[in-house]
Computed example of a mutant assay.
Amino acid sequence: MAAIEVFAPAKVNLTLHITGQRADGYHLLDSLVSFADVGDVLRIETGAGQGTGQSAGNGAEAFAMTVEGPEAGDVPLGGDNFITQMAARLWTGGPLRFHLTKNLPVAAGIGGGSADAAACFRGLSFLAGGLDAQEPRIRAQLVELGADVPMCVRSAPVHVGGIGEDLIPVPQMPCWPVLLVNPRVSVPTGPVFKALVQKRNSPMAALPADVSDGPRMLEYLAAQRNDLEPPARAIAPQIGAALAAISATQGCALARMSGSGATCFGLYEQAAEAEAAAAQIRAAHPDWWVCATRLGGAARAAPQLIRATT
């Protein structure tokens, strides 16, 4: 038996330009993505019993799954969960048991189920002795499960293209203090994309030559955009309220929505500014999800062995 834990950091779309739409309906992305030092934690145990299926290879329902944590209430179990779907696609070993500590809001534009599925992939890769996310069959499986999954598998700063499968690492990007705010409204991705009137928009400007230059990068990011923000705000006006609240805090260098929403973020140069902003917004909106952290979740993304095979 073995047990491992895998951190699933929150995804933050610093930019999100929609540059087209394929004939099959998938949208083309041009996005700069980083990952925050807050997220879910997935525990995977081998040889720990099964779910309702007959064997671990018979489908998502064959894996045991439990969930706890402050955001556990909205997590689907069984075949509807991305974690067990990932295992059903790629795991050919014995029984597995999953336990998810859910800290991130669901359907919030910061990875959520995709981050958890990606953590599952990294864990299964560790247990199997290495799975290649770029191998064509596996790459297709990851994209089919969700366009955000390949970038979340990497869980490090990346320039994303295609429908989410074209990834160019951006390893020197600053790890700014970041404030994440979700006004407690669920915004499903499908309706937001459907409400996007203009499907063919301009791509991001070329990245600065030195992406490690924090002030220059903040200036660059301010000149980019999230094309899904206007349709998301039309569907959920609370997003506008969250952005206004973040923008009004002292030291906020950039406020923007992440992904398809509803989570918004603010970037700061000092951690104390992000923490003070979080306290200010919590006091004004105690029902919102508010978290002050920093970018750089990749440092914790590798699976950690808790108990070795005996």
Rank of each mutant, 00 (worst) to 15 (best):
I138G: 01
P157R: 00
L104V: 01
A156M: 08
V75D: 10
G112M: 02
R122H: 06
S125C: 09
G51W: 00
G57E: 09
R154N: 01
T101W: 04
A107R: 14
L124T: 00
D37Y: 06
A133F: 03
I44S: 12
A108L: 09
V75K: 14
G130I: 03
R43W: 03
V149I: 14
G129C: 11
A62P: 05
V67G: 12
E45P: 02
E144N: 13
F126Q: 14
F121C: 03
E45D: 14
V41L: 14
C120R: 06
M151C: 15
S125G: 11
C120A: 14
V160I: 13
H99D: 06
G79W: 00
R137Y: 03
A36R: 08
I83H: 00
E68C: 12
G161F: 10
A156C: 09
L100C: 05
A108I: 03
S125Y: 08
R139C: 05
V75R: 13
G109Q: 11
G94F: 01
A117D: 07
R139V: 01
W91R: 12
G112R: 07
G112C: 10
G39W: 05
Q54D: 13
P95F: 03
S55G: 14
G53D: 07
T52R: 13
G113A: 15
V75Q: 11
G109V: 03
A117K: 09
G39D: 10
L42Q: 00
L42H: 03
D148W: 12
G59H: 10
V67N: 14
M65Q: 09
F63R: 00
L96C: 08
G123C: 04
D116W: 02
E61K: 11
L100K: 08
H159A: 15
P76W: 07
G129T: 02
A156I: 04
E71I: 04
E68H: 15
F126I: 05
S114N: 00
A72Y: 04
P95L: 08
V153L: 08
A128H: 10
A156F: 01
R154H: 09
D40V: 03
K102G: 03
L77G: 10
G123R: 10
E45G: 09
S125W: 08
V143Y: 13
A115M: 06
A87W: 07
L145I: 08
V41R: 15
A140D: 15
A87E: 08
G111W: 01
Q50M: 14
D40A: 10
L42M: 06
G129W: 10
G129Q: 09
G69L: 00
P95S: 14
W91D: 10
S55K: 09
M151E: 03
G78V: 08
G146I: 05
A72P: 00
C120I: 05
P76I: 05
G47M: 07
G109K: 12
A87R: 08
G129N: 09
M86F: 07
G78E: 12
A87H: 09
F98L: 05
C152K: 06
W91G: 06
A119C: 11
G78N: 12
N103M: 04
L100A: 00
T92A: 15
G161M: 12
R139S: 13
G39L: 06
F82C: 12
V153K: 02
I44L: 14
V75A: 11
G79V: 07
D116E: 11
R137M: 11
F82N: 13
G130N: 06
R137V: 11
Q50H: 13
F63N: 05
R139W: 01
E144V: 06
G59S: 04
Q134L: 04
V106L: 10
G130M: 06
